[in-house]
Amino acid sequence: MKDFTQRLIEDKVGLIGFIGIFIVVLLAIFAPLIAPYEPDEMFTNHVMEGPSSQFLFGTDEFGRDIFSRIVYGAQVSLQVGLIAVSIGAIGGLIFGLISGYFQGKLDQVIMRIMDVFFAFPDILLALTIVAVLGPSLTNTMIAIGIVFMPVFTRLVRSAVMTVKENEYITNAQAIGVRPSMIIIKHIIPNIMAPFIVQITLALSGAILTEAALSFLGLGVQPPDPSWGMMLNDARAYMEFGPWTILFPAAAIVFTIFCFNLLGDSLRDLLDPKLKQ
C-alpha cells in the first residue's frame, strides 16, 4: 500500500486528477461557506450580468449567482456519482461473486439477464428507467446505478474466475473452509484492483450521465442546481451571456477529466503487466 501511494504521487498525471477531485469534494462539502449566495437566490436587478467582483461567474436569466450554483451543483454531481456507483458496484459485486464462484445454472441465469441489459445503450436505458420512475434526484441515482450494474457484474465474475483457479483457494476448499469465508477472506481482497479502477471510471461516467439526463430535463429537477440543467437552461440566452454556458460546461469537463486522469493512472499502476 505504501509502495502504491508512493507510485501514485510519482505519477504526476494521477496526482493532478486526485488534486482536482479533492477540490471538487471540498467545494461540495463546504458549499455553504464557499458560495457567497444561496443557489436559488434571485437578484432581480442583476439579470444576465457578466462576471464581476460581486458575481464571480456572472448571473443567469433569473439573476441567480452562477458561481454559487456551480458550487452547490458539485454537491448534486458527487452525490449522484457516489450513490449511483455504489448501487451499481455493490449489485455487481454480489451478482459477480455468485456467478463467478458458484458458476453452473445460476451463473447462466445471471449472465443472460446482464446480456439483456448490455443490449441497451447506456443513456437509453437510463432514460427509459427515469421515464418509468419519473424524473427526480433519487430516481436518477437508481437509474444510473442499474445501468452500471452489468459492467461491474462482468468484471467481478471474470476476476473471480481467475482468482478461483489459484492453489490457495483449492487448498482452502479442501480443508473445508466455508464458501462465504473463502469469498470474504481470499477472493474479495484479490479482485479489488480492477474493481477500484472500474469504480473511478464509473464515477466519471455517472456524473456525465447525470449531467446528460438533467440536460434533457429528465434528471435532477429545479430548484436543485445541476450542472447539466444549468447548461440546458442557458442555451436559450447564450448569445447574450456566454458565461451562462461556459462556466457550467467547464465545471462538468473539469470534474470528469480529473476522474478520468485518476482512473487512467490507477489502471496503469494496478496492472501488473505495465509495472516495469
Binding site: 456525465l208 440536460f215 477529466f257 478520468n260
Partner: peptide, 14 residues
C-alpha cells in the same frame, strides 16, 4: 483524454 471527458452536449452547446 479531453475527448473522452467532454460530454457531447457540452461540446455541442459551446
Amino acid at each position: 483524454l479531453l475527448g473522452v471527458s467532454i460530454p457531447n452536449f457540452a461540446l455541442a452547446t459551446v
